[in-house]
């Protein structure tokens, strides 16, 4: 009986990082805002490095409310798409280091942002949690903080439409029930 040796850790990391890059690289607006993602295993943290162009109130100064909304929405959409992509990749059905077909992103139905305190002129972080992901709809909650993880400056909840392939079965690369 032969036992297959596990893949070297660099090979696994390379594949997972390629999948994440493939997911993000196609979206101009994510690059425009400068949003990055930190990956630890399958856990993602969105990072918004501070930039002068993100300011909405120069007197305080504070981040623009629209920037905060966009940051939370991006974190939610990427978390949702990443969940499905991860499953496909770990099951060996896709190889992100080869040519990866562009992932069809979920569409936002609605998004509610709760502004808890003003966004300071510093880096911001966000993590999203998928509360429900069915065949067609998903509900995602996002928390965002700056200096202290426990002191959120904003949170959001959104509903999303999962892209459907032409034949009506759940899209590959996106979460299913």
């Amino acid at each position: 009986m032969t036992v297959q040796r596990p893949e070297p850790v660099q090979v696994i990391k390379q594949r997972r990082d390629a999948a994440l890059r493939g997911l993000l690289s196609g979206v101009p607006y994510i690059a425009y805002l400068g949003i990055q993602f930190d990956r630890r295993g399958d856990e993602l943290t969105a990072i918004l490095p501070f930039d002068e162009k993100l300011i909405g109130n120069p007197a305080l100064p504070a981040l623009h409310g629209g920037v905060t909304a966009a940051f939370l929405e991006v974190a939610a959409i990427i978390e949702l798409a990443w969940g499905g992509l991860w499953e496909e990749m770990e099951a060996g059905r896709i190889d992100p280091t080869a040519d990866m077909a562009p992932v069809r992103l979920p569409k936002t139905i609605d998004f509610t942002v709760d502004y808890l305190r003003s966004g300071l002129p510093r880096d911001a972080y966000a993590r999203a949690r998928i509360n429900r992901s069915g065949r067609r709809y998903a509900s995602v909650h996002v928390e965002a903080w700056q200096d202290n993880r426990a002191r959120l400056f904003a949170q959001g909840t959104g509903h999303f439409l999962i892209p459907q392939p032409p034949d009506g079965t759940p899209e590959k690369g996106l979460p299913s029930a």
């Binding site: 979206v27 607006y29 425009y32 966009a70 929405e73 562009p102 992103l105 936002t108």
Partner: peptide, 19 residues
């Protein structure tokens, strides 16, 4: 084009509309 959310269609990102 810098504010596009879906490069396949060129549709603006919802975040830009929110802002």
């Amino acid at each position: 084009p810098r504010f596009v959310g879906d490069p396949a269609t060129g549709v603006l990102h919802g975040g830009a509309v929110s802002a």
